[in-house]
């Protein structure tokens, strides 16, 4: 059988203005369906994908921000947000959507998916991956 690989998707573009954010999310969901060990990192303008309260009614585009809340169901439970990128935009963890997953090993306890990490911590996490995809 196939070997489980550690895949990380790195998101550094804002949503809606370009197609990168939605394309990445779709690829992540497909990858997750194949039972790989998938994590995501949000750096630079990618941070903006996670802002809460998105409402696209006036611009006639699909609001895909609710889809990030399904990541936990797809067993994508590691979502890293770079602290430096967050701070460069005057934002805090509180400005982002609250993403959670249920930990099967702990009687389905609800846990936070988002972890705010420094650049150097994120660099270390990237070094542990088998495959990295940039969007």
């Amino acid at each position: 059988m196939s070997v489980t690989k550690k895949l990380m998707y790195i998101n550094r573009r804002a949503p809606y203005g370009t197609i990168y954010a939605w394309e990445s999310l779709e690829v992540v969901l497909i990858g997750a369906a194949f039972e790989q060990d998938v994590s995501m990192a949000f750096i630079d303008d990618g941070i903006y994908q996670l802002l809460k309260g998105q409402d696209t009614n006036d611009i006639g585009m699909k609001n895909f921000s609710p889809t990030y809340s399904a990541l936990g169901d797809f067993e994508v439970t590691q979502i890293f947000v770079e602290k430096e990128s967050l701070e460069a935009r005057g934002l805090a963890l509180d400005d982002l959507m609250h993403l959670t997953y249920e930990d099967e090993d702990e009687d389905y306890a609800e846990k936070d998916s988002i972890k705010v990490v420094s650049s150097s911590e994120l660099a270390d996490i990237m070094e542990q991956q088998d495959v990295l995809y940039n969007f």
Partner: peptide, 15 residues
């Protein structure tokens, strides 16, 4: 309605 995507079969089964 909630997530704007259809679940993959593995996710569907569990849910």
């Amino acid at each position: 309605e909630e997530y704007q995507i259809a679940p993959a079969v593995r996710v569907l089964t569990k849910a």
